[in-house]
Simulated scan of single mutants.
Amino acid sequence: MSEADSEVNKGETAWQGPERAPSRSIVLAIAGLAWAAAMLWSARATITGRADAAMEVTSTAYAMPGAVSAALVAGAAVALAVVTSLARGGRTLRFAAATGAGLIVGLLGGLTIITINTDGWIYAVVGGTIAAAATIGGALAGFHHPRVTAAVCWAAIGVFLVGVVLSFLQHDLLPVFGARDTSSSQADAASYFGFAQGALGGLVAGLITYRLLRRARHRTGADLRWPLYALAGAGPGLLLVVGEILTRTAGARVLELAGKVSELELTVQQMLSSSRLNNGLIVLFVGAFTAMVAVGRTLGSPASPADSSADSSVEKSAGTVTERAEPDEIERTARDEDAEPVGSRTDD
């Protein structure tokens, strides 16, 4: 086999990665669907539990960003499971299958919201936004590095769990950030708490993606370049930013309607939107930096003991040769050969 063929095979193995094992992809798909189902069930229960129309609108606006982010991950996870189950097929087929799988997940998720009230346009907007998010997630899974997509999905679930835990501890943690009886101190503490949550989420994202990609390298023997580690670490934050962009664009009418309920509600919606974007950006940059630092610690590592012993043996051998072949001895041998009679050389 030629060297070029060997490189091609290595590249193909790196593309397939550990996610070619259907069992791991199925577990990820189940986790992604469970997260999306929980967010959609919570959104539906919150919306239908409001008897007042104004509260129903604001509850829909509050629930939409979380459902959109979960749909992004669920679409990518299910699409990745579909792609890895394809034994053969080019990139075009994989991309089409991944996008189609994300679209199916999105349609099913959107129906859970649309069926709340089929006559209300607000639910159609939310359902369409969820369907678009899952489709985009599915398309992302059709790109060249499925192991990066899988690591990003797992890390996104980890960031979500960090947010859930911190939300339960928020009341106890706000005094640590300076919350007092005044409204200004509480607002400042909430802002500091949001930054800390984003930083912790980014740290978790970077560490999870690094560990998963390293485990994939041990299983397959093929590693990725360090920029892909940084991209994987930034992936969960990137999904949060994409989810916020979809919420502000595809779901803009819902946010506008919620802002018309009152001036206070408009201010709250603007603050929440800004907080979500800042949180996504913090997770993005901290996750990328954490992954780069983690992979950077492994670059240029000292040689293994076997390599060191081999190098010392080579150095000893070289030293022996040098000791045996002194410059004076080499010159003396050369003079003797020049002084040797021509006839004796012929006889030899």
Rank of each mutant, 00 (worst) to 15 (best):
Ser184Ala: 15
Leu246Phe: 11
Gly251Val: 03
Phe168Asn: 08
Pro22Gln: 13
Val126Met: 03
Ser262Arg: 13
Trp121Asn: 01
Glu7Asp: 01
Ala189Tyr: 09
Arg20Lys: 11
Leu169Gly: 10
Asn9His: 09
Met292Arg: 12
Ala61Leu: 02
Ala38Ile: 14
Thr290Ile: 15
Leu281Arg: 01
Ala54Asp: 14
Leu255Ala: 11
Thr129Leu: 03
Ala87Cys: 05
Leu86Val: 12
Met271Ala: 15
Val8Trp: 13
Arg248Met: 08
Val261Cys: 05
Ala98Thr: 08
Ala151Asp: 07
Arg147Ile: 02
Gly343Asn: 13
Gly201Ile: 13
Thr112Pro: 01
Thr298Asn: 12
Gly158Thr: 06
Ala76Asn: 04
Val283Trp: 05
Ala325Met: 12
Ser85Met: 06
Val176Leu: 12
Gly201Thr: 14
Ser167Met: 09
Ser59Asn: 04
Arg335Trp: 07
Thr182Asp: 14
Leu93Cys: 01
Leu72Cys: 05
Leu207Ser: 13
Val8Ala: 03
Ala21Lys: 07
Ala339Ile: 10
Lys10Ala: 00
Thr267Arg: 07
Ala291Arg: 06
Arg253Ala: 15
Met39Arg: 12
Glu326Asp: 14
Gly259Met: 03
Pro236Gln: 04
Ile26Met: 12
Thr118Ile: 09
Val78Trp: 02
Arg147Glu: 08
Gly127Lys: 10
Gln269Asp: 01
Phe289Cys: 10
Ala291Ser: 15
Gly194His: 02
Gly202Asn: 05
Ala232Lys: 11
Glu12Met: 02
Arg24Asn: 11
Leu161Pro: 06
Gln197Lys: 13
Ala179Pro: 10
Leu103Ala: 12
Ile208Gln: 02
Tyr229Gly: 01
Gly221Gln: 14
Ala14Gly: 11
Ser275Pro: 06
Ala258Asp: 03
Ser42Met: 00
Asp119Gly: 10
Pro236Ala: 00
Ser6Thr: 09
Leu212His: 12
Val148Ile: 02
Ala139His: 10
Ala310Asn: 15
Ala4Gly: 01
Arg214Ser: 09
Pro302Met: 04
Gly194Asp: 01
Gly343Tyr: 03
Ile130Ala: 00
Arg276Asp: 11
Ala310Met: 15
Thr129Gly: 00
Gly89Gln: 06
His171Val: 09
Asn279Glu: 01
Ala288His: 05
Val125Thr: 03
Ser317Asp: 07
Leu224Trp: 04
Ala141Gln: 04
Pro302Tyr: 08
Gly259Ala: 09
Met271Lys: 13
Asp188Arg: 13
Ser317His: 04
Thr346Gln: 14
Ala141Tyr: 00
Ser25Cys: 09
Glu326Lys: 10
Asp188Glu: 10
Leu266Pro: 00
Ala131Gln: 07
Val242Leu: 15
Arg297Tyr: 12
